[in-house]
Structure formats: C-alpha cells, structure tokens
Simulated assay, not measured.
Amino acid sequence: MTAPRILDATKADLPGILEIYNDAVANTLAIWNETPSDLESRRAWWHGRAAQGYPVLVVHDAQGVAGYASFGDWRPFEGFRHTVEHSIYIHPRARGAGLASALLGALMDCARGCGKHVMVAGIESGNAASIRLHEKLGFTVTATMPQVGCKFGRWLDLTFMQAQLDDRAAPGEAH
C-alpha cells in the first residue's frame, strides 16, 4: 500500500473539512460539540491556525478530503508554550485505511519543527480505536477524568494521552 500524500490544507479544502467536522458532531463522540459548524467558522479556525504558525493537514481520496488534522496550544499560558493538543478526523468512507496514523505522524513531525516538546490528546475514553492508534505512535495514558463531558444524553469520560516529541532536558536547549 502506498503511503497517503499529506498536504497543507487550502481554502478549497474547507468545505470537505466542514463536512467531516459536522459528521463527527452529529454522529460520534470524537467532538463534544452538539451544534454543527458553518463554513465561516471553519475559515476563521483555519486562519487562526495559520496566524499561529500551526498546520492544518489534509489527505484526499477520489471523492475529496478524506481526513484532516491540526494542533493548537494546549493551554493559553506561557508556561505551556511547548505543549500542543491535536485533533484528527477521518471521513466515514475512509476510516480504517490508515489515514489517521499517517496524519498523526505528519502532525508530530510538524510539532517538532515548531519546537514543541509534548503533544497531548484528549480522547473519549470509550474510543478504543483512537487509544490504540495513539499508543502505536508512542502516546501513553496520563489521566482519565470520569464524567467531565456529556453528549447524546450521557456522561462522558475523557482520557488524556501524551507523547514527548524530543529529548531536551530543559526548555532553553536547542531541539
């Protein structure tokens, strides 16, 4: 199998990204929002990532955007500037084809290139496939927070996982 071609998202990808995002809102526990987004919101999100120097990556198949991934600041305080939290979403037609693994690997490389030290994942605790994917790429479970969210009329537990992206002993060291 050929490795998927990972690209930087363009404005033309935003409708496909929106379709994937809204499917996850409506049908999954991957996003804990209950209100669908609109194209202007996705455009503002994309511009915001670009303004921070953070990537939005996409992979295409014959029908368009098959998946996307990005990361942003984990917490908005200076002391957390070396840590990012990521998101990966795959179109239902493309799930199980290895795209999430390829996107996550590329995203981790981008984070290293930005000088980040740790990448965090917040995953609904029942999402065994996502937890396995993250473990495969070196993430470890660091916390489980019971009943911190809700969707579809039930409480949701949140599992935090993280991966160390480099071996710097101190933040000031070159990476």
Rank of each mutant, 00 (worst) to 15 (best):
M1R: 06
T2E: 04
P4T: 05
R5D: 14
T10N: 10
T10P: 04
A12L: 05
L18T: 00
E19G: 07
E19F: 14
E19T: 14
Y21Q: 00
Y21S: 02
D23I: 06
V25G: 05
A26H: 06
E34H: 14
E34P: 10
T35K: 12
T35I: 15
D38K: 14
R42D: 08
A44T: 10
W45P: 00
R49Y: 11
Q52M: 13
V58W: 11
V59P: 00
D61E: 13
A62H: 02
Q63V: 15
A69D: 09
S70Y: 01
D73C: 01
R75F: 14
G79Q: 02
F80D: 00
F80C: 04
H86V: 07
S87E: 05
I88K: 01
I90C: 09
I90G: 01
R95K: 13
G98I: 03
G105A: 15
A111S: 04
G115V: 02
A121T: 00
I123Q: 01
N127S: 08
S130K: 02
L133E: 00
L137I: 11
G138V: 06
G138E: 10
F139V: 00
A143E: 05
A143F: 05
P146T: 02
Q147M: 15
Q147Y: 13
V148C: 12
G149D: 05
K151Y: 13
R154N: 15
Q162E: 10
A163R: 09
L165G: 06
D167W: 11
A169P: 03
G172T: 09
